[in-house]
Every structure is written in C-alpha cells, then in structure tokens.
Amino acid sequence: MSAVIDKADIASYAIRWGDDALILSHRLAEWCADAPELEEDMALMNLALDLVGQARTLYTYAGELEGRGRDEDAIAFTREERDYKNALLVEQPNEDFAYAVARQFLYDAFSLPFYQALASSKDATLAALGEKAAKEVRYHLKHSADWLIRLGDGTDESHRRMQAAIDELWTYTGELFVNDDLDRRLIAAGIGVDLAALKSAWNDTVSTVLKEATLQRPADGWMATGGREGRHSEYMGYLLAELQYMQRAYPNMKW
C-alpha cells in the first residue's frame, strides 16, 4: 500500500458517510407532524437534526480536501443521483411507523460501532466526528431499540407489522458490511473502518433486541447492494427531487 494518502479518497469516504446521514435524516424529517405521538414527532426530528449535523461536518471536510470550492451545500444538493453513495437501507420509504423503527434500528446498530471505530481513525477530523457522532447515535440506538421491543412485544397487530418491516428491510443490511476498494485503501492507511469487522457487534445487538422484542431474526439470504456505487432504488429520484428542489430551481444563490 502506498504510504501517501490520497486526499481525494478521504473526501469520497467523508461524502459516503455524509450521504447515509443526509438521506436518513430526510426520511426522518418526512414524519414531521405525522408521528404517532407529539413526543415522537420531537424525537424523530431530534434524530434527523443530529444526522444533518453529522452530514454537514463530513461534507464540509470533503469540500476542503477536494479544494475545488465545493461547500457543504454544493455537495449535499447539486450532485447527480449516481454520485450519492448512501446505503440502500437509509433511502427506503416510510411505509408505516414500524418501517421507520426497523430502518432506524438496523442502521443505528451498525452506525454505533462504526463511529466508535472511526473515533480511532488516524485522520483527526474523522476521529473527532466519530467521537461526537458515537455519543449521539448511542441515544438513537436506545430510542429505536426501545420502540422495536415495544412494538414487537405490544399487540398482535404491532407484532405483525414490526416483523414484516424487519423481514422486508433485512435484505438491505448486508451492504453495510461490505468493504470495497476505497474502504480497503483507507483501512490500510489506518483511516477507514473495517466494515466486515463490525458485523459481530451488529449481530449481537440485533439478536439480543429482536429476542426481547419476541421477533424472529430473518435468515441471511440474498442481500441487495449497489448504494455504495450509486445504484439506488426507484425511491431515490423522488427523494432527491424534493431535497434538491431549491438549489435546482434557483442555482448559485445565497440563502
């Protein structure tokens, strides 16, 4: 491995994780004024706000590393769909509250060990973000796990809905643990996180919580991939149309 660390690699890496945070925050924000309880409206918005904060740090850093004059908003709002590298899981729609809980839980159970590991990155900015984000995500995981248990072990209807959401979204969890060439280069440089190594922590969390929720852990069958290469679901285009609306309709303005 080359001892010289390519700044462009770190920028791409920061954008990838920023995309996870931004797209998930968008899905959470769609719950505004639509959550099952006022308290939950506030909680979901709070998670979304943390994620927007994480995305801003990552995009700003990526823009600095690139040195091409892109700021956080240029990166967040003016890329083509193929340039967004978020995992497919986070773009999945809010079919019902159980889907939102399942998506959040499956992702939080991954992002907590991810950010904890990133806190040891040799890149000081990523390490600092990892430390801050891990603190936030710890609360996110507690919140989503609590709901998973409540709904799994609540009524027959909530159990059925919660199991259906877990079953449906399970196929998007495999992608989270795949290291690609970029990951491998940055792992070798001591900057990136070995995603495959996070699988056992994720397995433990997921199995423990599913058991308490009286839910079945689905079998690890075929797993959908493509998000990290910018091949998204059909949902993504609509999400971006909304997210990018202002910057596309009124380009190059200050807001």
């Binding site: 505004c32 706000l49 927007v52 995305a55 801003r56 956080e72 609306y245 202002m246």
Partner: peptide, 17 residues
C-alpha cells in the same frame, strides 16, 4: 425536506421541534 441549505434545514428542524 425542501430547505435550500443544510444550515437552513437544521434551523427549521430545531424550530419545528
């Protein structure tokens, strides 16, 4: 979901909260 910048989005989220 349509705020023009991330800063404005964060401010609006906090306000609605």
């Amino acid at each position: 979901t349509r705020a023009p910048t991330l800063r404005r989005k964060a401010i609006l989220m906090a306000k609605v909260q």
